[in-house]
Design a protein around this nucleic acid. Structure first.
Lengths: 162, 162
DNA sequence: AAAATTATAGCAATATATTGACAGATATTT
DNA sequence: AAATATCTGTCAATATATTGCTATAATTTT
């Protein structure tokens, strides 16, 4: 009976443990270093992700909070807090939807767009460091694995009553 | 002039953006689903990581806070908060070091060890879902990429005055 | 030996993330 | 049409993460 690497439960458990731990460390470091890299722009990593989403999705009137929360995979409540801080600083605006008066449509202000442009050089500089020595092929593979895990955990989430 | 996939700056920037975003989403989902999976044990994902580290590193007297913080790659201040909540619930104990009276040595209590054992079945169940359809080879590769990124960001961190 | 520097844990302030809850709006069922 | 169920954004409470700061201890420099 050949002890194949793919059939060793203890090895697999160890790999999964290490992978989860690595994910934990990476995410914390991404938050820390990303926020520091954009310090001059007064934009945290999380706010950067939100601005990036708003830039990418050019809805005519903006996007509803629950849609943005779904896209970012964070809770509506947390997003409300982050958006409030961004609105206070003039990066985004909230507008009551004409279609559904409960809904608030979120979009970047002209200042928000300007901030995005101003950030680009520092974003590029940050990525140079964070993705150093990773080829495009590496990036594609890493993306594939994280994608797989995200989908898996999304399913787990739904199973848990999401 | 051949437009090679490895030389396209726009593609690379897009990949890096998507990778960072995926990391953000995955980490949040890991925190959410991991904590939910261990709900019966009243242990969050972060506390699980700490217990795991304490289990793995079997120092005779325990580990100092700054060492544990370094291992986990989180700040001492944050760790202090998490440890306090764990101590309050009897999972860990803090003991003044005989060698350096400023230092607090952290280790699991007997209850902490027992909690770790009790968690194993639910941990395994969670991993089954989160790592579904990923072979051991996949796990090894994913680990490699996250490792690479972690090291890169660690270097960036040091450059930023970490 | 004294002075200066560095290290330790933890307090405080702020940002992010979750869950529970809820007023009010909207959609579905009766 | 009325009753019921669901949805929307946000408040509140709690956990996690960062930075600045500090009293005290330890180490290094003078």
């Amino acid at each position: 009976m050949k002890q194949d690497i793919d059939t060793s439960a203890a090895l697999r458990a160890q790999l999964m443990n290490r992978l989860a731990f690595r994910l934990y460390q990476c995410a914390n470091l991404l938050n820390k270093t990303g926020t520091k890299a954009l310090e001059a722009h007064d934009v945290t990593t999380q706010q950067w992700a939100i601005i990036g989403a708003l830039v990418r999705e050019r809805w005519a009137e903006g996007i509803a909070v629950h849609q943005l929360a779904s896209l970012l995979m964070v809770s509506r409540q947390n997003l409300t807090g982050v958006l409030s801080r961004m609105e206070d600083r003039g990066l985004i605006e909230r507008k009551k939807s004409k279609v559904d008066s409960r809904s608030r449509l979120i979009r970047l202000t002209p200042d928000g767009w300007k901030r995005w442009e101003e950030m680009q050089a520092d974003i590029a500089g940050f990525y140079d460091g964070a993705m150093k020595d990773l080829s495009n092929n590496d990036l594609i593979h890493a993306l594939h694995y994280l994608d797989r895990m995200r989908e898996n955990m999304h399913d787990v989430d739904n199973t848990q009553g999401g």
